[in-house]
Amino acid sequence: MSKRNRPRRASLIGWLGSKQVAPWIFLAPTLAFAVVFFLLPLVYAFYISFTKWDSLTPPKWVGLDNYKYILTVDPVFWKTFGNTLYFAFGSIALGVPLAVGLAYAFSKSRWQGLWRSIYWLPMITNVVAVAYIWYFVLDDRFGLMNRTLGLFGLGAPGWLTNPKIAMTSVILIFVWMQLGQNMLLFSAGLSDIDESYYEAARLDGASEGQVFFKITLPLLMPTTLFVLITNFIAGLSYFALMLALSDGTGGPMRSTTVTGLYMYQVAFSDLRIGRASAMAYVLAAVILVITLAQLRLFRRGGVEAY
């Protein structure tokens, strides 16, 4: 009782620890961070994108020149944009069906801890290790992949050296990296489906295939849309694997240069900071438009599926 009736200390610490002031103190580090490392960079990069700047001499205002150059003159930018789309579409076209199938096999299996650990292994591996591990596996003549193909008398493609298939190899590696994560998202989606649907279907004599295509897949739609959207957006801005696999060149012959990697090269190798900043904003604008369109699709799909 004595404690409760004691008059509140009218000190600075008491004021700081009050219900009105404390939340702002809790938020202070985040707000300071937001100003210096979120708002300021966005404004700063926007300003730089209208200048010509090599980071050594003062920036020179050039108006819309950087944007004009990227969109109308630079042939490399559009090539990298095509590569980016190919990568983003390719990795979901290949990765999502695989993840659904594996999650379906995984969801009611035994030894789930074991399967999960194995399928998550690539996901918790750093991208440099992933790149070099596959660099050895996909070695033209003596890599594990072409040795194995050779056993079956199959040809030995230059997985990472042939510009026509290098990006497809990157997609295969990326799918391998991401499979565990998507599999887990799908298996969470599968466990949300009510068991009674399956029981009813089995009583009606539905086959396993019918159950999968007529019940499981439609009910999994919200998860599928979520995975498709998040993977696609992540795919558009991804470039770490391409950088590590190609020594930062995006080769062979620019075949694995995605727009994010091109921006990085233009900024930190060519020191054309203004042009690279404009590139970042163009790519971000594309991603924003796609995100908004897909969110709309997601909402509609989510409602319809329920």
Partner: peptide
């Protein structure tokens, strides 16, 4: 503020590479 936190997640990482480096 909460909506801003949700919105901030949508900004891709590559957008910050160059300006944060020079900041």
């Amino acid at each position: 503020l909460f909506r801003s936190v949700l919105g901030a997640q949508m900004f891709p990482f590559f957008l910050f590479l160059i300006p944060v480096f020079f900041i």
